[in-house]
Design a protein around this nucleic acid. Structure first.
Lengths: 119, 119
DNA sequence: TCATCAGTCAACAATTTGGTTAAATGAAAT
DNA sequence: ATTTCATTTAACCAAATTGTTGACTGATGA
């Protein structure tokens, strides 16, 4: 997860992913829109590759990159956990309940042995 | 976006966010599960704050942190762009079409009519 | 044989990150 | 006035990140 989110934390790399959503691209093609050396772009691509966000297919001289969506889904799923905090007004209520619950948790400094809710 | 994804790229910080989903937490409470100094945890919290992922309410000595979901939604939406690459079998077709399109785009560039799918 | 071309690798530098310890802050309680 | 407590700040350090330039690779094709 660290590497996935890290890979996504750079505009250059996000742009490259976006480009790859339109189809395969060579390293040079991916690098073209960015104002940096090819070597620098190559490093970015390697970061994406190590995060599993792209797959590389070497055809003769050119390295063809493909989007690999599975890790994106994992990241997306991870964020979905927080969906209730931004979606409907119903969930605002839900959120308030959670906060109230936390308040109760805090109010009792002495643990009550007669209750265990999880697991 | 950079700062949001960067904030998410650290397990300690993701854990803190997760804890905050259960309700408000003080800095000390957020730091407790993590094997590091309070000062280090404080830095992590500041990273989250700068990314807009948490809001801080100072009540006397203790700083109470709240989850701020809006940036999480932005990140989630950004990733949703790639949804078609992992969802339904219908979208697998869509993806194939995109790749085929890219192939055509390439054939125009490189007028070599025989592209054998070798290996 | 030799230049070419796509891309990587190596070495270097500046900046950021993530951690440490020790000192500072600032209002409340004593 | 002094202590206390939650937290921040400062100074420092090692490692990672992001960029540069220049040399290397390895199959092609003139």
């Amino acid at each position: 997860m660290d590497t996935i989110f890290h890979a996504l934390s750079d505009e250059t790399r996000r742009q490259m992913l976006h480009d790859l959503a339109d189809g395969e691209r060579s390293v040079t093609e991916l690098a073209a829109p960015h104002d940096m050396s090819l070597a620098a772009a190559s490093k970015h691509i390697k970061v994406l590759e190590k995060a599993g966000l792209i797959r590389r297919e070497i055809r003769w001289r050119t390295h063809i990159c493909h989007l690999e969506a599975a890790p994106l889904k994992r990241a997306h799923d991870e964020l979905a956990f927080y969906e209730r905090f931004w979606t409907s007004r119903l969930d605002v209520l839900e959120r308030l309940l959670a906060e109230e619950d936390a308040q109760q948790r805090k109010d009792k400094d002495n643990p009550n042995p007669s209750h265990g809710d999880d697991r």
